[in-house]
Write a protein that binds this DNA or RNA. Structure first.
Lengths: 204, 204
DNA sequence: CAGCTTATGTTACACTCTGTATCATAAATT
DNA sequence: AATTTATGATACAGAGTGTAACATAAGCTG
């Protein structure tokens, strides 16, 4: 007797569990939420939770999988023409965040280890800000230095995580070199230059 | 009667709690660990845990704070000369990861929401790989396209998180433009060009 | 509409984990 | 050697978990 996902009762129950869960996460954080809390907040019987999900984790996954799939579905294939017209996977992402802000807040809500990574990213960004200030240059098109720094810091921390997660396929020193190179010169230069230039970002 | 951190018994107990905790995280994941587990694994009485830490979270923080502080302490101030000689905060980070690999694995070990972010990053990286392949170019110096893609994807996802966490201080469309621009043209071009070029990364 | 099916609600139970208390023991400090 | 302080053993109340049996209510079908 697997649960019939087309039954309106089931859909209602799941939606209420998910909504209650999201409210609770934003209000008191993931870790301190009990199944009882979810049941109370959603006005369902506690046992009903177990009829749908094994544990909190599974409910969370259910909430966020939809988000991921929706993003993928909305991401159109990349093309130079699209980018010149202002379309890219990045712009899709930002639009999606605005559209589903609450769920993204849940997704990004820090837990435990995350705050340490966040501090490392911040530290890295500060070092990059130092370098920018030290260069004594004002950026073209008034891009806020903070953004430059966080963009670069995220790339560097993220690539390091990728590297470790993938079993350190290259030497650390080589990775560090590449990471710095990519940040400083960008993909176009790395790919041997190009006739095509992206639009210079300006606040309108 | 606050606990005396210089007492060798205290130091021993804490070290054993931390080591046991790290082992357990790597083996069965953070969420499913109970205080009892930590006590058993570390051969201490359960009540001893509570004499040192309020909960799991606090123990985790204790484990990782040291890591963060050690990294910060080892990061030397940035300078163009240093970068030319191969020193940068990035290289410090990679060296530190190699040195403290186990703790970094704990730090990066995915929990719940993280796997969804990871999938988004992967998705973004795949789109970037598409673009690289589509361009039909071979990168200078044989930098693996996978690295380029993950570097860029991390930057873009990370900047989006920063943007949301900081209260969306700029319009989404502007952020998307900047994110793309920085990725494609890099910091040097963004800062109005420079006489100084970083070393081209090569596998030696 | 009546009858069947299926999801939810109620109550109950055994179990694990938590957080705390008390007292005994062992290790450090003086 | 005496005192201080940390750890260990045992116990307990309370909360949360996961499951069961049965009753009720909502949806589907002829």
């Amino acid at each position: 007797m697997p649960i019939n996902l087309n039954d309106p009762r089931v859909r209602k129950t799941r939606k209420e569990l998910q909504n209650a869960f999201v409210r609770l996460i934003l209000c008191k954080g993931y870790d301190s939420i009990s199944i009882q809390d979810i049941a109370s907040e959603s006005d369902t019987a506690r046992i009903t939770f177990y009829r749908h999900y094994k544990d909190k984790e599974e409910l969370l996954t259910d909430c966020l999988n939809t988000l991921y799939e929706d993003l993928v579905q909305k991401t159109s294939p990349i093309s130079a023409a699209g980018i010149l017209a202002g379309y890219s996977p990045v712009s899709t992402l930002y639009a999606h965040i605005e559209e589903q802000e609450t769920l993204y807040r849940v997704l990004f809500s820090s837990r435990g280890t995350q705050t340490v990574i966040e501090r490392m990213r911040h530290h890295m960004a500060e070092r990059i800000l130092d370098a920018i200030r030290q260069s004594g240059r004002a950026p073209e098109s008034n891009i806020p230095p903070e953004i430059i720094a966080y963009h670069a810091a995220s790339a560097q921390i993220g690539l390091a995580i990728w590297w470790l997660d993938h079993g350190k396929p290259y030497p650390a020193s080589y990775m560090a070199q590449i990471s710095l190179w990519l940040t400083l010169t960008g993909v176009i230069e790395t790919m041997g230059g190009s006739d095509f230039k992206p639009p210079i970002p300006m606040l309108t």
